[in-house]
Amino acid sequence: MKIETRQFGTMVIEPEKIYTMPGGMPGFPGMKRFVILKREEIWPFYCLQCIDDSELCFYIMDPILFKADYAINLSQTAKEAGWEGDLEAIKLYVIVNTSAGVPEKITANLLGPLLIHIKRFEAVQLVLHDSNYSHQHPIFETR
């Protein structure tokens, strides 16, 4: 299946690898289908490209790369998402924000992590309303 992407033009993807987000993402109602594009040139980031709107994409990364002690209550969350059991199939990502315009100032949203279930092909963005994590956590250590 061919899709339009914001950064990489037209791409061919496997339809069964489309993730659905039943709850959508805050700020983007109705945007429910995404693919995760992995490209060496933007690693350690991945592109979360929306299928419903080719101009919408987010960049995500594995938080362990910059904050090894980042933790969320996975079993509680899995229960809320209707993902009973099989916690191994859940991957945790955070969305990064480069809107400061300076690469060193990139931040990650630790307050609204993205959970994806690699077997169900479903994803949810959590809102950690009782957490002390920052929604603008710097990825590069400040010197």
Binding site: R6, Q7, M25, P26, G27, F28, E41, I42, F45, E55, L56, C57, F58, Y59, I95, V96, N97, T98, S99, G101, P103, I106, N109, L111, G112, Q125, H135, Q136
Partner: peptide, 15 residues
């Protein structure tokens, strides 16, 4: 934060 992260300018910067 989602709205900022989705800004089209991000594509240029991520590289």
């Amino acid at each position: 934060e989602n709205v900022k992260a989705a800004s089209p300018k991000a594509a240029m910067d991520i590289q």
